[in-house]
């Protein structure tokens, strides 16, 4: 789980050009990354490709922090 969370944070930081050290597991990623819903879907697509999984977006309903996002991904690995 820790590794998944680290990879989620690293990928988000890289793609949205935010310093990795500014991201923490319990951050609201909409606010921290400054992204809207379409960009969130872009992040979801990148995470699916990175982890080679399919993560239905309804499993992300109400999810806005990296820790829960990583847990949802972990459940599909």
């Amino acid at each position: 789980m820790d590794q998944t969370l680290d990879e989620v944070l690293a990928l988000a930081a890289l793609h949205f050009k935010v310093p990795r050290e500014k991201l923490t597991p319990d951050d609201d990623f909409f606010k921290t990354l400054g992204i809207d819903s379409l960009q969130a879907l872009d992040l979801l697509t990148r995470l699916e490709h990175h982890f080679h999984i399919e993560l239905p977006d309804y499993e992300l309903q109400g999810v806005s922090d990296f820790r829960t996002l990583a847990a949802r991904i972990q459940a599909r690995l």
Partner: peptide
């Protein structure tokens, strides 16, 4: 005003 109008 939800940040996720495109999510279910």
């Amino acid at each position: 005003e939800d940040a996720q109008p495109y999510l279910p």
